[in-house]
Amino acid sequence: MTTDSKSIILISNGIITPGYLQGVQEVVFQKFGLPVIIMENQGELAPFFDPYRKQYNANELLKDTARLAPANAYKTIGLYRVDLFIPILTYIFGQAILNGPTAVVSLHRLKNEFYGLKKDETLVLVRFKKVVLHELGHSFGLKHCHQYGCVMNSSTYVEELDQKSNDFCRQCLLILSSALKD
């Protein structure tokens, strides 16, 4: 498959909740102003499963996302519902290569029920959008921002995700617009 050279590709890996993919597509388009294309991956995730950690290796999934990305894709982000880890950390919400072409995000730990709380699908989508924007931000060269409320603020807990908005602060917007012009 080939796309416009400046499209953002969302690769869904089993995201079945109705409205999630469209919700993410809309917000990505709104924030980055680029065409956003959704792709479905039917491939097996088993090769990326670590039986010792009972989680999926995000480093390997990043490579897989790069492999699945259309030849001339601008940025590609893999969306998952499985629990992600990188060897050095117990878990991650998502990962991107700074200024790189790919990123991965999972909604596994964004769900209230993971923490023993009442299911709230609307809240999951809100969190999911923030993590996707954050990782895409990294892929456009943005680093963690110390501005309270900026979507590029670092979040290691869902409670921190809930504290921030899905907007980029002025400073991050400036860097982003310059990256988008390149």
């Binding site: 480093n59 990188i86 050095i88 950390l89 990962q95 290569i97 990294h138 680093k143 963690h144 670092s154």
Partner: peptide, 17 residues
């Protein structure tokens, strides 16, 4: 000595600036 550890930490800290 593990490349994956080095890469993961590198990415993590680079994102933090």
């Amino acid at each position: 000595d593990e490349e994956s550890v080095r890469d993961s930490l590198y990415n993590w800290f680079i994102e933090d600036g």
